[in-house]
């Protein structure tokens, strides 16, 4: 089976897509992080540096800035045979840091045929400046490459069920911009770990109240502290009951956290059993480290093949569902 999988060529011009049973399937990675090392809080810098291999961890800023740059991400995509990717703005100054909407726009302008973006907003001064934050978000979403919204309640410290923030979903629905939400716990220092910030069941009220808004449940509620599925069945239940819910299995199947691929296989198997293949959108949560983007794609394709996905279903996960949900055209191969 592995022999049937051929990824992007290692040398020469990149050959995009995944070749499965003689059919080349385009791939979009809907979860990549651009950024700058100095935008990351010191505690998280130390956390990340500790995960870099020696001796690169003796100068983590240079490594991070290189791989997080537009050129660095394009290089990782080329190595993986991935043509297009979705880049996330982040406003979580106390946990994972800040990658502004303007920074993401710079990436989009750098490679408009390969990058799309998700805009985000500050919520740490919500009581006094919510309207200003929403106005800024709306302005960012006016950029033609900004096709959705990124939120991470655990990183941004606001409850999933707090109606004070539902204006974000209203705006996203009105502008027809899907909302990506980090669900599950996070390994980063300073993140909220209580259920109201991590358990996707707390999103049900918003999902029900805003049927015109697409909710993409990132990481499937995975518990990154205990390294186990915690919210998978909740995500599947929500996607089964609400047509505006989609699922994204990034990061939980990383080589370090899921060495034998069991967690990722379990997620892919359960989603297919529930008849939700048309709701799954592929993402990696890269670039993380050199080669991670390519390896995560390989592991995901293997997990799908191991759990009985047909080639048509694999194509839906890797690019078809993304194209339909975000209303963009993925470059044909």
């Amino acid at each position: 089976m592995t022999a049937a999988l051929v990824f992007g060529a290692a040398c020469g011009p990149p050959e995009y897509g995944v070749l499965i049973d003689g059919r080349r399937i385009p791939v979009v990675d809907m979860h990549l992080h651009p950024g700058e090392w100095h935008g990351v809080p010191a505690a998280t810098q130390a956390f990340l540096a500790g995960r870099f291999p020696f001796p690169f961890n003796t100068n983590p800023g240079d490594l991070a800035d290189g791989i997080l740059s537009a050129e660095g991400i394009l290089e990782e995509l080329d190595d993986a045979g991935i043509h297009g990717a979705l880049l996330y703005a982040v406003y979580a100054p106390r946990t994972v840091g800040v990658a502004t909407n303007e920074l993401v726009e710079g990436y989009l302008d750098h490679a408009p045929s390969r990058f799309w973006g998700l805009a985000s907003l500050r919520v740490d001064q919500w009581r006094d400046a919510s309207q200003e934050a929403l106005d800024d978000l709306e302005a960012a979403l006016a950029h033609p490459g900004m096709i959705g919204v990124k939120l991470a309640h655990a990183h941004m410290h606001f409850r999933m069920d707090d109606p004070a923030y539902f204006g974000i979903y209203e705006l996203a629905g009105r502008m027809q911009k899907p909302v990506y939400l980090h669900t599950g716990t996070s390994p980063f220092p300073g993140t909220s770990r209580d259920a109201a910030y991590t358990d996707p069941v707390y999103l049900e009220g918003a999902i029900e109240a805003y049927p015109d808004t697409v909710f993409i449940l990132g990481h499937l509620g995975f518990d990154f502290i205990e390294r186990e599925h915690r919210g998978l069945e909740t995500c599947i239940d929500l996607a089964s009951r609400f047509e505006n819910v989609y699922l994204e299995p990034s990061a939980l199947g990383s080589p370090s956290g899921d060495p034998n691929g069991a967690q990722l296989r379990e997620a892919m198997r359960r989603m297919r059993e529930a008849g939700l293949v048309d709701r799954i959108i592929y993402g990696s949560d890269g670039p993380q480290s050199p080669g991670f983007v390519a390896e995560y794609l390989e592991r995901t394709v293997e997990a799908m093949r191991d759990t009985g996905y047909e080639v048509d279903e694999i194509e839906m996960v890797l690019s078809g569902n993304f194209e339909r949900v975000f209303g963009v055209e993925v470059a044909q191969l």
Partner: peptide
């Protein structure tokens, strides 16, 4: 072939 600060990963030199 050092293994620096076990269990972190080290690159051979």
């Amino acid at each position: 072939l050092p293994w620096v600060d076990v269990p972190a990963i080290s690159i051979p030199g």
